[in-house]
Measured scan of single mutants.
Amino acid sequence: RHRTIFTDEQLEALENLFQETKYPDVGTREQLARKVHLREEKVEVWFKNRRAKWRR
């Protein structure tokens, strides 16, 4: 597996949602994934990693 490289637009959308909710539900993740052309799984893992970074 290779590392996903997120575009600035994707990161902006992910960060904006993170400010709203640290734990978006699957529907919200799917909606964002469609909007920025990512797989929902990638969005889910990004949030998991972003929460870990936020806790540190």
Rank of each mutant, 00 (worst) to 15 (best):
P24H: 02
K42A: 15
A13R: 05
E30K: 10
A52Y: 07
E44I: 06
I5Y: 05
R29I: 15
P24D: 03
V36T: 05
L11P: 01
T7Y: 07
F47L: 04
F18A: 04
F6S: 06
L14D: 15
D8E: 13
N16T: 09
K48H: 06
F6T: 08
T7S: 04
W46L: 00
E44N: 06
N49K: 12
P24M: 01
Q10M: 05
F18K: 02
V43Y: 00
A33I: 05
T28R: 11
E12L: 05
E20S: 10
V26Y: 09
V26N: 12
A52Q: 04
V26P: 07
Q10C: 02
T4A: 09
V36Y: 15
T21D: 15
F47S: 01
Q31G: 10
T7L: 03
W54D: 14
V36S: 04
K22C: 03
R1P: 09
L14M: 06
N49R: 07
R50I: 00
L17D: 01
W46R: 03
V26Q: 08
K48P: 00
R55L: 13
L38S: 08
W54S: 12
Q31A: 14
F18M: 04
K35A: 11
T28D: 04
R39M: 15
V26A: 12
W46F: 01
E15L: 02
T28K: 11
R34F: 07
N49L: 12
E41A: 09
R29K: 05
R29W: 02
A52T: 10
A13T: 04
E20A: 14
K48C: 09
W54C: 08
N49T: 12
E12F: 08
K35N: 03
E40G: 12
F47Q: 00
E30I: 10
P24Y: 03
A33W: 00
A52R: 04
V43H: 00
K22P: 15
K22A: 04
W54G: 07
L14E: 01
K48Q: 11
E40V: 14
F47A: 05
K35G: 06
E30H: 10
K35R: 11
L11G: 02
K53I: 15
L11I: 08
T21W: 06
E40T: 10
V45W: 11
K22F: 04
K48I: 03
W46C: 07
V43G: 00
K22E: 08
F6L: 14
V45K: 13
T4Q: 13
V43F: 03
H37N: 15
F6N: 02
R34W: 07
W54L: 07
E12W: 06
L14V: 00
E15W: 03
F47M: 05
E40K: 13
E44D: 13
T4R: 06
A52C: 03
T21V: 13
H2F: 11
R3E: 14
A13N: 08
R39W: 05
Y23Q: 03
R34E: 08
R34T: 04
F18Q: 01
K42E: 13
W46N: 00
V26R: 12
V26H: 14
V45S: 15
K22N: 04
E44F: 04
Q19C: 11
F6K: 02
F47H: 03
R51L: 03
V36Q: 15
D8P: 12
H37G: 14
E30A: 11
R51W: 04
K35V: 06
R3P: 11
E9G: 09
Q10L: 00
R39K: 06
E15D: 00
F47I: 04
L38E: 00
A33C: 10
A52W: 05
R3K: 13
T4P: 11
E44A: 13
E15G: 02
L32M: 00
K35M: 15
R34S: 10
A13K: 02
I5C: 07
E30P: 00
